[in-house]
């Protein structure tokens, strides 16, 4: 009788552990924000300035650009990989951007982002600096 109970409990214990092994990651992923991310593009920006003679000059620059819509929607998060609990996971890092010239729907990024950075464009759920995210393709 007692042995039977122990045996059943053992089975339940290992079954639960197996179930958790198979599902823990998806349960975890369901509870964190799902985001989509993409690289920034380069755009041509023109800047006008006065030279030493007082004449107006225009300067064309080909530099990193961010969508105006995205920029104005709130904080900008960059997708990074962080070592959490012994493995690399996708996380969101808050970017502090300095902007420059504007051109149509683009705003020039002077600092705070790199060309290789992947910017989070769309997030289901609340993001904060350092939070873990799931990237949706």
């Amino acid at each position: 009788m007692k042995k039977k109970a122990v045996l059943i409990f053992t089975l339940i214990f290992f079954a639960v552990m197996l179930l958790l092994t198979l599902t823990a990651r998806s349960i975890h992923n369901a509870s964190i924000p799902h985001v989509s991310a993409r690289r920034l593009t380069n755009q041509i920006f023109t800047e006008e300035f006065a030279d030493e003679n007082g004449d107006m000059q225009t300067l064309k620059r080909y530099s990193l650009a961010i969508d105006r819509e995205l920029y104005e929607s709130g904080n900008i998060y960059v997708l990074t990989q962080t070592l959490i609990n012994g493995e690399y996971r996708d996380t969101a890092r808050l970017a502090h951007i300095e902007t420059g010239a504007e051109a149509g729907r683009y705003i020039e990024v002077i600092s705070g982002l790199n060309p290789i950075d992947r910017i989070i464009t769309d997030a289901k759920g609340e993001l904060y600096d350092g939070c873990e995210v799931v990237v949706v393709k």
């Binding site: 975890h28 509870s31 609990n85």
Partner: peptide, 16 residues
Amino acid sequence: LLFNCFVFYPMFWNSV
């Protein structure tokens, strides 16, 4: 432990 520490599972099964 169970929903954020996935390295735990392989180690558990290794022990078993």
